[in-house]
Computed example of a mutant assay.
Amino acid sequence: DHTVVFLQKGPLVFVSVSATHQSEQQLRGELLHVYHQIVSMLTQASITRIFERRKNFDLRRLLFGSEKVLDGLLDTMDSDPSFMLSAVQCLPLPSSSRDALSQILQKAVTPNLVFSFLIANNRLVSIIQEKTVLEDARLKPSDLHLLFNLIRASSAFQAGEIWTPICLPLFNHDCYFYAYVAYLDPPKCTVCLVLLSTDKEAFYAMAECKRKIEEAFASQNALQWVANTQLYCVDDIGVANLKHFLYKPSKMLDHHHQLPQFT
């Protein structure tokens, strides 16, 4: 037996044909993530404008070269609980180490810098939201999933400093941020710095922020903190016969300003 699910978003219709035991709601959620990934590359405003002008436009022309990104998203959703939990997987670190890393990111500022992310092995280490961003305008986990997937799916980001537009659909589906992406530990390429700016001409300012962050990391040997991280295992829980576990806080106080996360 197969389950067929449709999702229409504006002029786009998505179809899922599945032989798994997933519910219609789960399949529709996966289609929604695919739609959001497309919006992250084109923006919703651009898609709407294109189809208002030409109703029979073949969107594949604009998505040429993005096959790895979309395929990577579908593959990741098969195995990553982040999507099911609507949460972000964080790298386990002592709070003192994470605070020190966050303080380094906070000190590397420049006009129009909106968000700073430190990512290690596809896990979030730290995220800094600049004070210029409205407090109630928070990133959603889905936007982080799209950003992580974009970086993970393309080896081009390992070649050096990359400057690319990206839309975060649940933050603002009609506008681009400009992402400065650079790995801090080549050639291993496990620790990634992402700086989001609203200024498309800010590449060199972002590169200067990265230089300051690298200097601060080197002075404190901070990359070694990340490299020495031990992931949680079932034995850490101390429950007999437990085979696997996921942990997600059920409540998050508003003043914590945290993304939903899980272990």
Rank of each mutant, 00 (worst) to 15 (best):
S154T: 00
L223I: 12
V194H: 06
L168R: 08
A202T: 00
A227S: 11
K140C: 10
R138E: 07
C209R: 11
A153G: 13
P165E: 13
I237C: 14
A218E: 15
T164Y: 10
F245R: 08
G160H: 09
A218F: 14
A227V: 02
S197R: 04
E208A: 07
L195T: 01
M206K: 02
K212E: 01
F203L: 10
Y176L: 13
Y180D: 07
F203N: 13
L147G: 10
A153K: 10
H244P: 04
F177L: 08
C192I: 01
K243P: 04
N172F: 12
A182R: 15
G160C: 13
D235W: 07
Y178C: 04
C192S: 04
F245I: 09
A179E: 02
E201K: 00
C192Q: 01
K188P: 01
L139W: 03
K243H: 04
F203Q: 15
E201F: 05
A240L: 09
P165A: 13
D185H: 10
M206S: 09
L139C: 06
L144S: 04
Q158M: 08
D143C: 05
N172W: 13
P186F: 12
A218Y: 11
C175T: 06
N228S: 14
S142R: 02
C192Y: 03
L147V: 00
L184M: 06
A156S: 12
I162V: 15
Y178H: 09
A227T: 03
H244S: 03
K243L: 08
I237H: 14
C167V: 07
F157P: 03
K210Q: 11
F157E: 00
C209E: 00
L242T: 00
T229I: 10
A156N: 10
D185C: 11
L150G: 08
I237G: 05
C192D: 07
F177M: 09
D235Q: 14
A159Q: 12
K212N: 14
C189V: 03
C233A: 10
R152H: 05
A179G: 13
N149L: 02
I162N: 10
L195G: 01
K212W: 03
P169W: 06
A222E: 01
V226Q: 00
N172P: 11
F157S: 09
Y247A: 13
P169K: 03
K212M: 14
E201A: 02
I237Q: 15
N172G: 01
A218W: 15
A153E: 09
C233H: 06
K212R: 15
A205C: 07
W163C: 07
C233W: 08
D174L: 01
L150R: 08
C167H: 10
T198E: 12
P165H: 12
F171Q: 03
T229V: 10
N228M: 07
C233M: 05
E214T: 10
D174Y: 11
F157G: 09
Q224W: 15
A179C: 15
G238K: 12
D185V: 15
L170T: 01
L246T: 12
A240H: 09
